[in-house]
Design a protein around this nucleic acid. Sequence first.
DNA 1: TATATGACGTTGC
DNA 2: AGCAACGCCATAT
Length: 93
Amino acid sequence: MTELQDRFRSVIADLALGEVVSYGEVARRAGRRGAARAVGAFLAEHGGDLPWWRVVRADGRLAAHKPTDQARRLRSEGIEVSGGRVLHALPPR
DNA sequence: TATATGACGTTGC
DNA sequence: AGCAACGCCATAT
């Protein structure tokens, strides 16, 4: 586990219930602005014990591989999901 | 070193 | 809204 991965893990582990952030936001909070893809790569192997479902794309779309599972988990936390998108927040900027 | 890849992001058409 | 190009960062080969 590299130090960068450790920071990613920390940021994601600290996400509160119902708190949804983008991959880019996670990278930013970890001090690696722009490393959104790296966040995805990290979750791909060490995402087992982390709340990976609270991480979505910048436009609100859900993760590409397990969208249904993610939608189910998000809804169980009170977050509205429709058309594979999180409505709640994430307005374009 | 160099190239390819992907749970991404932005911009422009 | 949807799509295609790039750009970007870390890894794997």
